[in-house]
């Protein structure tokens, strides 16, 4: 991780609302080249909204999001639904917007275990295969920034760890920054440099080891999620009500 070069993503004070309902507020985010930043948080925490705002798919109501000039992004969306009436092979899917032939990237395809699927129709793939093909499409662009929205969705538990290991390995090789969404901290721990725990606001952020014992994290995910990790004590700097909202300083302990 190189903190001396300017970050790939610099987001400050990002606020997103839908129909006047606040989805995200006061979010700061930085992703450097070579760094893996993981957004975790419960459903509805605004993880995907933040990713979509970074990608320019959604306009924040306040705050600024700056991407480094000319940044090449590889994006892996959360879901892919291709109509069964569209005859599309995996090979064709991978080359839809890029001129790089899959054959030139045999190594990537082999590592992802999809080299033998090139002539299969996209619709015949299993959930795990679809995720790996989506990751391959993002990687074939030789991205400087990888954005992965729930990359292990639909992948069995054994495959999830493997997929995270692969993401870490590709980060090492490409030297790209990675911004990904997950709701399972202990699975992404090994492959993550920085964790941002979101629940419409930024609950806590830092190294995954630290986060997993952060009271704000424990309050969101419960002790079971952290039970598998070593004990570590930490100063609680704010509290949540049952909906995960921060209790105002008057009632709680203040917000850090």
């Amino acid at each position: 991780m190189n903190q001396n070069t300017p970050p790939l993503i610099t987001a400050e004070g990002v606020r997103v609302t839908f129909d006047g309902r606040e989805i995200l507020a006061g979010i700061d985010l930085r992703v450097h080249a070579g760094e893996i930043v993981t957004l975790i948080g419960p459903n509805g925490a605004g993880k995907s909204s933040l990713v979509r705002a970074v990608l320019g798919l959604l306009r924040p109501d306040a705050g600024t999001i700056r991407l480094r000039q000319g940044l090449r992004i590889g994006y892996m969306p959360q879901r892919l639904m291709i109509d069964v009436n569209l005859p599309l092979s995996v090979r064709r899917f991978l080359t839809l917007t890029s001129k790089i032939r899959p054959e030139q990237s045999q190594e990537v395809l082999r590592e992802l275990g999809i080299a033998q699927l090139l002539d299969q129709p996209m619709q015949s793939l299993s959930g795990g295969e679809t995720q790996r093909v989506l990751l391959a499409k993002a990687l074939l662009r030789r991205p400087e920034l990888l954005v992965l929205d729930e990359p292990v969705q639909g992948v069995d538990v054994a495959g999830q760890g493997e997929l995270y290991r692969l993401i870490g390995r590709f980060r090492d090789r490409l030297g790209c920054g990675v911004l990904m969404v997950s709701h399972d901290l202990h699975l992404v721990m090994a492959a993550t440099d920085t964790v941002l725990c979101l629940n419409r606001h930024l609950c806590c952020s830092g190294h995954p080891e630290t986060i997993s014992h952060h009271p704000a994290y424990l309050a969101l995910f419960g002790a079971t999620a952290a039970a598998q990790l070593a004990v570590y004590t930490h100063q609680h700097d704010h509290r949540h009500d049952m909906h995960g909202n921060v209790i105002p300083p008057a009632e709680g302990n203040g917000h850090g």
């Binding site: 990608l55 320019g56 798919l57 994006y75 569209l86 899917f93 839809l96 917007t97």
Partner: peptide, 19 residues
């Protein structure tokens, strides 16, 4: 043809990829 096919497959992915 090419960009239309790309956005038919996944609109947001196509958008991020510069279409």
């Amino acid at each position: 043809w090419r960009p239309l096919l790309a956005l038919t497959v996944h609109e947001e992915l196509a958008r991020v990829e510069g279409i």
